[in-house]
Amino acid sequence: MAHQILVHAMAAGGSTTVEALVKHPMDSGFVKDKAGKLIPPHYIEVIEFTHNGKVVLTGFWGPAVSKNPFIKFAFKGGKSGDSIGVSWVDNKGETASTTAKIM
């Protein structure tokens, strides 16, 4: 399944609000599949947000972050058309990244 990251970034009143929905199973390692076997842990460990290349938030996630994680935060500055970057790496070494423009 392709990795996907959906991003909304809106500039208003001198700051930019970023919301992201990240497609990822975030398997905790404590849940069994239909056959009764534990599904091994598989979760994003580090997610990083950049604004025009500068880091604006680094998230460290454990297996307790919900499936298809959602995050919302804001930073000072940013204007319409600026680039927001998102990248993550998970505990299996898989990575994904995307960019979006501030609305």
Partner: peptide, 9 residues
């Protein structure tokens, strides 16, 4: 607004 493409795997 979303998304360029995914990278990595």
């Amino acid at each position: 607004v979303l998304a360029g493409a995914a990278a990595g795997t």
